[in-house]
Design a protein around this nucleic acid. Structure first.
Lengths: 195, 195
DNA sequence: GTTTGCAATGAATAGAAATTCATTTTCTAT
DNA sequence: ATAGAAAATGAATTTCTATTCATTGCAAAC
């Protein structure tokens, strides 16, 4: 097995374990077991437990940003873009459940190092939304008096809370597309100028 | 000092410590120090570390639900009610910063016991919103095809995400009332029937 | 002033788990 | 086939901190 493979294998295992038990309750030996390597092997690839979490963020959120930007590049209309963002985000939550669980929990930790991290990668992701709002305001589709800084948060928060419902309760009363429809519909009605 | 005082003193200290370091990184000795009691004293009032967290939820969220229900009882119009909820919630975040931090973080933990807890108290709180939506739909003010189960989440998520911004970044670009205005305005526009 | 019972203390204990490292296994080049 | 290097192993060590409990302090009762 190539070195890169084992790096990824450990990260995948860590995602699973962190996702189900949370960072603090996860033991290195759990991750090792899941990845089918010895405990010590993990230290050949990562400095320590926290480094695994950081690397996971770094690599996974980066991928995510690339993906969603690619999807958005195909659209011009800000209204469509907002919908695409919602759909894409919610799909991700279903398809990469474990990763979503890790993000859900760990982004909220208040350890200083996570705080510092958050202001880089995570904010990049959320700023994609304010970009869309901005564009819509410039082209006269969205109400100009609304603050993109608040809307991006509100919109992201709305999506994120739905994820929480799905992840924590395994509740699937609502489908991804119903939810994306309904949330973007509320927001689009809420922020669009009357025509 | 009366017994009840010390119980409260420890809870207050715990709120502060959990809020700033998170449950897992907080040491019992940190809490003891903050409360100005000996480590052992804490065990005269609580069974264990986790019991402190649970009690904190139990007592504080209960107070919160009572408060907000009282404020809402004074209003009849569902549109006003939604605004009041937003304002009340955001005010709380500012006034009881440490409690808000604890809720932010700990409600997202995936330990089974927290999960179980969440389905009782916390859901009661969020259900206040769906109650308002329901009322508004019955009286023909809100679009009837929207699902209260999604809206409540979206609305709560939007508020909660703003809290996160304030708590984690000490960012105060936006005031409480501006934010409550803007978020409830977006939602009210988004969910109301055209008049 | 002494006894009694409850509350508080904090040093000692115990358990858990992150990390290390001497040893073993696997791979690579000759 | 074999030496030497590189990677992997997992038992032993170290660290950390929740919890315990023998001791001390204190206030009311007698």
């Amino acid at each position: 097995m190539k070195k890169a493979d084992k790096h990824q294998k450990i990260l995948t295992a860590a995602t699973k374990v962190f996702g189900s038990k949370g960072f603090f309750s996860a033991r290195i030996s759990d991750i090792a077991k899941e990845a089918k390597v010895a405990d010590g092997t993990i230290y050949l690839y990562f400095h320590n437990k926290y480094d695994i979490l950081l690397t996971l963020f770094e690599e996974e959120i980066a991928k995510l940003i690339v993906d969603i930007k690619a999807a958005l590049a195909l659209e011009e209309d800000p209204r469509r873009k907002l919908y695409i963002f919602a759909l894409h985000h919610l799909k991700l939550v279903i398809e990469k459940k474990e990763l979503a669980e890790v993000l859900q929990m760990e982004l909220r930790q208040s350890s200083d190092s996570v705080k510092e991290y958050r202001v880089t990668k995570f904010v990049d992701y959320v700023n994609i939304i304010s970009g869309i709002i901005h564009q819509g305001q410039k082209s006269g589709i969205f109400r100009p008096e609304l603050k993109p800084g608040i809307i991006k948060r509100a919109f992201f928060g709305a999506l994120d809370e739905m994820s929480r419902l799905w992840i924590l309760n395994s509740d699937h009363s609502y489908t991804v597309s119903d939810t994306a429809d309904e949330i973007s519909s509320i927001f689009l009605n809420g922020i669009s100028l009357p025509t």
